[in-house]
């Protein structure tokens, strides 16, 4: 099937999913509904809109969906439906208006930049030809969008990072990245929610927690949320960390007027 891209409109003014996507086989319990190949807010909006439609009225045999940058992975039960039947049902769904919307709310996350909290900050400055202060100002001066959650529970891919900070991933990933590490790679930034191996460049640390298995939903962010990073000094970082540990700190979140 032709990849129709994000900006075409189906017949009769409707935007049927089938006219905007191609279906890719992922075994016999899943398939991808792919809306494009690029990371762009337009394509990502189609993905999340499709996920929301399917959550509202799940077709027979649908198990769960996983929105990613440019495609929706649809998990199904082959004993209750088939890829063919489910794809036919999904292709008919009308996405309606799917323009990029302003994030409904924006989180403000305190970050201690550089030093032990951000061991790659100096190297990022050197590689980009900026001062460390300029790197921090660029990183903290941008409102990011939650494109996708994944890789780790509570890890959110936040974009777009300013083009001047665009650097490849580390050639040799770290075996252990501390939780709370604020990291950048290419045009994305994100926070490692738990200790894990990782290849992104670490420029700071936030004491905020992003994942709680006992909460519903288990993650702080929702798709499409806005995120800003706010530089704080070490003393403030430590004060917030202690408050988070005591369960007495709720991260700032402002609704978009």
């Amino acid at each position: 099937m032709e990849n129709a891209g994000a900006n075409k409109t189906g017949e009769g003014g409707k935007r049927a999913i089938g006219t905007l996507c191609r279906f890719l086989p992922v075994g016999d319990t899943a398939f991808a509904v792919e809306f494009g190949n690029a990371i762009s807010p337009d394509i990502n909006a189609l993905v999340h809109r499709a996920a929301a439609l399917l959550a509202t009225a799940p077709p027979e045999g649908l198990v769960e969906t996983v929105p990613t940058f440019r495609s929706l992975l649809v998990h199904y039960d082959p004993c209750r439906t088939s890829a063919q039947a489910l794809q036919a049902a999904i292709a008919e769904l009308d996405l309606g208006e799917t323009g990029v919307v302003t994030p409904p709310r924006t989180w403000r996350l305190p970050v201690l930049y550089g030093g032990d909290a951000g061991p790659d900050l100096d190297e990022v400055a050197r590689a980009t030809g900026l001062s460390t202060a300029e790197v921090v100002a660029l990183h903290a001066g941008t409102t990011y969008r939650v494109y996708v959650q994944g890789f780790l529970p509570g890890f959110a891919y936040l974009g777009d990072l300013p083009a001047r900070l665009d650097l490849p991933r580390l050639t040799t990933p770290r075996v252990r990245v501390p939780p709370g590490s604020v990291a950048i790679a290419q045009r994305m930034t994100g926070v490692y929610p738990i200790e894990s191996p990782g290849g992104w460049r670490l420029i700071g640390n936030t004491p905020i927690r992003f994942f709680d298995p006992a909460s519903a939903p288990p993650t702080l962010f929702a798709p499409g949320d806005g995120v800003r990073f706010v530089p704080v000094e070490a003393i403030e970082h430590e004060r917030i960390r202690a408050a988070v540990t005591r369960g007495e700190y709720a991260p700032e979140c402002e609704a978009t007027p």
């Binding site: 992922v26 319990t29 991808a32 792919e34 990613t68 940058f69 890789f151």
Partner: peptide, 10 residues
Amino acid sequence: IVSDGIATGS
């Protein structure tokens, strides 16, 4: 690739 979803068995 641009990261996308993984199924068990991928």
